[in-house]
Amino acid sequence: MKNHIVLFAALISFGINTFLQAQKKSDINAVAYVQKIVKIVEQRNSDKEVWAGAKIATPLPDGGQVKTGAKSLAIVKFLEGSLLRVRENSILNIYGKKEGKKVISNTYIDKGAVQFEVQKQGDDEFRFTTPTAVAAIRGTDGLIFCDTTVTRVYLENGELYIESTTDPTKNGKIVGGEKISVDQDGNIVVAALTDEDKIIIDKAKLQTTKKIIIKTAHGDVEVEYYTSDQK
């Protein structure tokens, strides 16, 4: 009996130890974290087939993916400080690697919209890859949205270099206050941000949610909505 207890205790200890080791390894490899979740946000690592509900502070390793549902929002913060607001119906793939002292953070956006605030830190570089374009940015903020046919970037501040994935000889550069689109044929169009574009950017930054519940004798109604943020 005593031997069984000792064996059982040893197994438990081994199990806990293995779990902690795995957890530690996962944290060490984290490139970014899920900082905020609104409504439906799922996450999976590169070695997983199945999507699982994301939780706040979930570490996202190299190759991790985040998917948002309708009216949903995921805020992803990179270890170097850059922040992405992944808006509804989007899929974001996260990659990160070190080249010497330089950290290269890359994201692949299958579809959807991502508002970004990318920190400028030394030689570090941040890239967005979409089905039609690759954008390299340093210390800037704006909004990128894409589907399989076109990528659009609205840039509020800083600079952005972008090239077509189908024909890298086709490329362009924009500065704050401009927007650029790259379609599947590599056609690039640059224009100034319009008033409507700026409103779209501002709305993409909203992350505070509120609820109002109207209680009546015939039923209750609950409305949840995004509202202005106050820093």
Partner: peptide, 23 residues
């Protein structure tokens, strides 16, 4: 409530969910 109602009218896409529980 009036202010919130005006906001919701003007910003319908910002509504995340609407849930009704009948009595």
């Amino acid at each position: 409530f009036m202010l919130i109602l005006s906001f919701l009218e003007a910003n319908n896409p910002l509504i995340i969910s609407k849930t009704f529980i009948p009595k």
